[in-house]
Write a protein that binds this DNA or RNA. Structure first.
Lengths: 154, 154
DNA sequence: CGATTTTTGTTTCCATGGTGAACAATATCC
DNA sequence: GGATATTGTTCACCATGGAAACAAAAATCG
């Protein structure tokens, strides 16, 4: 008894998203997907870098000699997750793990020369990317959006 | 020549995030992670539903008899991605694939009785979740945030 | 000092969510 | 009727993440 159903009520035209448009999470996700795609089109030119990897590089660069555990805390992910990320960045020759002088368990993360120059290139592209995004808003709105996102994230 | 490095410059206290705090994407991601966790703690009670699956259910419920390809377009993912999602929802007994009366290639997606009642439960929890999130902002700010996110997503 | 506990990085296994390519069945278009 | 397009599916991937177990090395505490 494979009763065959009529097709979608709305054949043509746009379809309903139910209660989704009333939810912050829905719009948050859409904005992020849009931003991700824009990032990939622009900054991603440099060795297919992603927002996540760029963020890691930023924190490593801003805190020379950082241990992996500290990086994990800063990024709010598990240590086991950091291992893979560091593996990737090291495989690309952007960073190195150097043994710590004071704790033989720790690895101090450090940018390589290549890492420094590549990061500089990325930063230029990121600023351009950010500027293009910001162009969708007025300067005040961009400021306001940042404030609201921080407030929402607690 | 395993030169041992001194540990991180900033031993104690908070460390630097470099240029990240100046980027919309950074705050967008933080807000989303926070929201995701809250969703998991609240709505996730119902069979570990996720924002993604809930969104799919919403669209299916709001457009009875929807074909998978239409759903893929609405969610902006590939058809092959939809297959797994529909598999999951069907395995949980929330939806069924019914053969279309007019196109024997298509599957019309339809909520089951269980799907309808579970979705009703979820919707209550989602509204409570949304209310708790919104409580972090003033009503005007919530409205404003929605507007800005839509504008950013284009 | 010595024994226990904690921290650090790692490996392994797993789950999720996504893509692209190929494919058979079916519609659609000349 | 024959070429072309669409639909759902499978398969092999990739990326991101977590949990658990583990060895090595600190740190703590008697």
């Amino acid at each position: 008894m494979t009763a065959r159903r009529k097709p979608a009520i709305i054949e043509t035209g746009s379809l309903s998203y139910g209660m989704l448009p009333g939810l912050l999470g829905f719009h948050l996700r859409r904005a992020q997907v849009s931003l991700f795609k824009h990032f990939a089109r622009t900054v991603g030119q440099v060795a297919g870098i992603t927002p996540g990897l760029f963020g890691m590089l930023q924190v490593i660069a801003a805190n020379p000699g950082l241990a992996q555990s500290r990086l994990a805390e800063a990024m709010e992910v598990e240590r086991s997750t950091i291992v893979k990320v560091v593996d990737q960045l090291e495989a690309r020759g952007l960073i190195v793990r150097e043994p710590s002088a004071v704790d033989r368990r720790s690895h101090c993360l450090e940018l390589t020369e290549l890492g420094r120059s590549e990061l500089a290139r990325m930063e230029q592209l990121v600023l351009a990317h950010e500027a293009e995004l910001a162009a969708r808003l007025t300067p005040e709105d961009r400021q306001e959006l940042t404030r609201l996102l921080i407030q929402l994230a607690d």
